[in-house]
Design a protein around this nucleic acid. Structure first.
Lengths: 212, 212
DNA sequence: GTCTTCGGTGAACGCTTGTACTCCAGGGTG
DNA sequence: CACCCTGGAGTACAAGCGTTCACCGAAGAC
């Protein structure tokens, strides 16, 4: 990494961390217009401003880099869950807020949500695997969140799993749409649709429970 | 294409069509373990058994090939809709059958459904665009199908769109899971889950309509 | 002040990639 | 019959790829 003018005093670990971050960000950026499998080590190095071989000082391969990005991206996804469960968890008026929270996070961490959506189905095998595993964990986490909501005490574990799966699926799908959206005007439409969707799902879950 | 022994008599157009098919199938196959963007013209040619330059006699580029595969794959998806709407469309007992129909089609056209799932988010730009467009068409098609079912006459157009969007999304998600599934034993579990999911959604739609 | 550690360099390797050319053989057509 | 059309072969090239190796200079440890 070439020394930036005006800030010559950086410790060695600071410099290393800075380059490492640059590599991660650049790779995330390059993968955005297809997939990580189409990203070359040399292109990353070139964009970062280091020589190709210097890449190896930080990661063993693009795939290893990808696993790191998986962790980062899922930190962003978990943050959504955390923010959603923070207010008073009443099953009904939770909905409107949830969608807004999701939209906020997607907007702030656009690259991460896109990364998850892409690499889940089209990443390097190890990365794909890691994403699937993380999604399963998030589904479980959401299931226990739902179980804590008053009125869901007598639900079976299976029902909880199915519902949280459904919610995570449409959460990811909504995130995808928000990312692809031609910026601001279509966004409210997508959010409205997501809210309706979420209502349908929840009303369905409640009524279906009491029916069976 | 090297002449296959024992069937030397093929017209020129037949031979061309045969090579063309081989190219399409090979590309579909190679894209299966990541994405079309990771498939090289040379690799396809090699696997087909022709010299790289001969590829151009059939397609201008891998991307053009991809657009062709999009059409084929969506023929497979539309076939699901066609088979689902064939029996008597009563909203309730339709569900169990639908999931089986989907599973059948996914099993028969595994490669096509995987292709859609992957290239939708991670294909070459033009391919991605084409997939999104086709999905929108399928959503519309499903919406008019639903509108024909007795009991949905007074639904708003927006509600129809939202519901069909939700159904297509979970249809694609289910197909994905079936494809990834460690063959036969997990399949019934996925199908059960999908049925429950579908019931939740439909019950939700019905009840939510009558509530508002 | 000396020695060590280590992020970054630069040249070199063998291989794959897309694409441009010319050429050929054999079926289709007059 | 002779002629053309065309799918495929063969050769060639410049560019990009991942990876190896020896080397350097400055920050950090002592």
């Amino acid at each position: 990494m070439v020394a930036a003018p005006g800030e010559g005093t950086l410790s060695r670990v600071e410099r290393k961390e800075r380059t490492r971050r640059a590599i991660l960000d650049t790779a995330l950026d390059l993968s955005a217009d297809t997939s990580l499998v189409a990203v070359s080590l040399r292109q990353v190095a070139k964009d970062v401003g280091i020589v190709p071989t210097a890449f190896y000082r930080h990661f063993a391969s693009i795939e290893a880099l990808g696993l790191e990005l998986v962790d980062e991206s899922f930190a962003s996804l978990r943050a959504v869950l955390r923010d959603v469960r923070r207010p008073d968890p009443s099953l009904k008026e939770l909905i409107d807020g949830s969608v807004d929270v999701l939209a906020e996070h997607v907007d702030a961490r656009r690259a991460h949500f896109g990364f998850i959506a892409r690499e889940r189905v089209a990443g390097p095998p190890a990365v794909r695997e890691a994403v699937r595993h993380q999604i399963e964990l998030v589904e479980r986490e959401l299931a226990t969140d739902i179980a804590r909501i008053p009125g869901t005490e007598n639900w079976s574990a299976d029902d909880l799993r199915v519902l949280s799966k459904l919610m995570v699926t449409s959460m990811v799908a909504t995130a995808e749409m928000l990312i692809v959206a031609p910026r601001p005007e279509a966004e409210t439409e997508i959010k409205d649709s997501a809210r309706t969707q979420l209502r349908m799902v929840l009303v369905g879950a409640v009524n279906w429970r009491s029916e069976t």
